[in-house]
């Protein structure tokens, strides 16, 4: 049975698209047939992060409007044969995503895929609501920072009141927390909310903690999902995320400061 996963946050710039790309690639690498969909109409970026921007011919809105069929719009990833990307429209306005149209496209994808990862736009407007409406699972991407935590809580409220599962009284959406841009040094010095602090407030099942990492910018510069950078801390943290999502037990990593030599400990301000 296919599962639809929304990657959401409310606040912008916290790492939704990075997470969508990494999670979709991670699931596909394990042999699951996966599609990742960009719901950010007018501001599409998933294609850039996935490195397939020059292969976009048709988009999500074209499929909804019947101007192209799904197979014409889906882009097969060149690194992983199980992964497909459905880009957002860059030119239309956000009303291009009708609830009926989105529902039909997702229904069709569910027949041929195992996981459908929906990359939500920021905010709580139409595009974000459409991305979460049909979700079975939600990954709430949060930075250890007041406005991001508050917005995440707001998104949880919307998931539990405005999603299809909520409105049709079905089993509620499974909600997960992904804490990103985490800096153990700053947590240790008391200037950043720690993972326990955020957990205490949001009380969600924690999928992974992604450390603030140079690898994320490097990956987006190159158009490679960061999970493919297996040497990097962020890449490994995203691999853990996918493993835990699929039910594997893995100890949390990257929560502690790197052990430094005495010299740098004494003189780093």
């Amino acid at each position: 049975m296919a599962r639809t996963i929304v990657i959401t946050s409310g606040k912008g710039g916290v790492g939704k698209t990075t997470t969508s790309a990494a999670m979709a690639m991670g699931l596909a690498q394990r042999g699951h047939r996966t599609v990742v969909i960009d719901f950010d109409v007018g501001l599409r970026n998933l294609d850039l992060i996935m490195g397939c921007e020059r292969r976009v011919v048709y988009d999500f809105a074209n499929v909804i409007n019947g101007e192209a069929n799904l197979n014409q719009a889906l882009i097969r990833d060149k690194r992983c044969e199980h992964l497909f990307i459905l880009p957002a429209s860059q030119t239309r306005d956000k009303d291009a995503l009708t609830q009926e149209g989105v529902g039909q496209v997702l229904e069709e994808l569910r027949k041929t895929h195992d996981y459908i990862v929906c990359d939500s736009p920021a905010g709580i407007e139409h595009g974000a609501l459409m991305a979460m409406y049909f979700a079975d699972d939600a990954v709430v991407v949060t930075n250890p920072e007041v406005s991001s935590v508050r917005d995440s809580d707001r998104m949880l409220g919307i998931l539990s009141s405005k999603s299809r599962r909520a409105l049709e009284n079905e089993e509620p959406i499974r909600e997960f927390l992904l804490l990103s841009r985490y800096s153990p040094e700053r947590v240790a010095s008391g200037e950043m909310l720690g993972v326990e602090d955020v957990q205490e407030i949001l009380a969600l099942n924690l999928l992974s903690v992604i450390p603030e990492s140079k690898a994320v910018l490097n990956a987006s510069n190159a158009g490679t999902p960061v999970i493919l950078d297996v040497e990097s801390d962020a890449g490994q943290a995203y691999s853990d995320m996918v493993a835990r999502y699929l039910g594997e037990e893995r100890p949390m990593r990257f929560l502690e400061m790197e052990r430094k030599g005495l010299f740098s400990r004494l003189f780093r301000g």
Binding site: E145, V146, V149, R150, V187, A188, S189, G190, E191, M192, L193, G194, D197, E200, I201
Partner: peptide, 15 residues
């Protein structure tokens, strides 16, 4: 000193 950092203020306000 560590507990006196701005993070504890952030947590209180958020709660």
């Amino acid at each position: 000193g560590a507990r006196k950092g701005s993070a504890s203020v952030a947590k209180e306000r958020l709660q």
